[in-house]
Amino acid sequence: MEHATPPAAAAAGVTATVDLSPAAANLGGAQLLPCVIRQNAAAPVSDYFKPRSTGVEVEGVKVEEAFFRGRKLQGATLALPDGYRGYVLEKKSGEKDTQNSDGEFSSFVSRAEFQSITYWNHDVTPSAEDSIPRCFHWLTVANAMHKPVTAEELSNISALQNQDN
């Protein structure tokens, strides 16, 4: 079992454990719809939700098409970057922990895994300007921010500063 305690969350006094060990079903891709379906249960997605390629490509984004509840959705598939994996987590209930001010202890267990996300827009052609693909920018930024600085980089910076002076 792996325990992940993000530093930010720990600072705020919240602890969560995520158990990624169960051999989860591999979904391949996850679908992100522009709506909330107020049900928490399995559904026969592959029997009813039938995405197809439109053959249209807008600025490198391959547009897909699907229908849900009578609405036409246009979507695009984003592969998760190298080093990242997607999980469908289920919250385990009933466990108490005194660390949390609300007396609630969050514990999750993985139920499925995915390597890509297809996000769907209603009425709008997907583009690189959509917020979902732009969210991935954070991964690059986070990486740059948290990556340890090497001695070489440090000496390069000081060399540059010396030049400026």
Binding site: P34, C35, V36, I37, R38, Q39, R69, G70, R71, H122
Partner: peptide
Amino acid sequence: VRFSWGTCTPFFKDAVEVTWET
């Protein structure tokens, strides 16, 4: 089925509620 038809409305009463971002 034409989802936009009034004939469908009574059938959606028992269905799971769906709220659209748009």
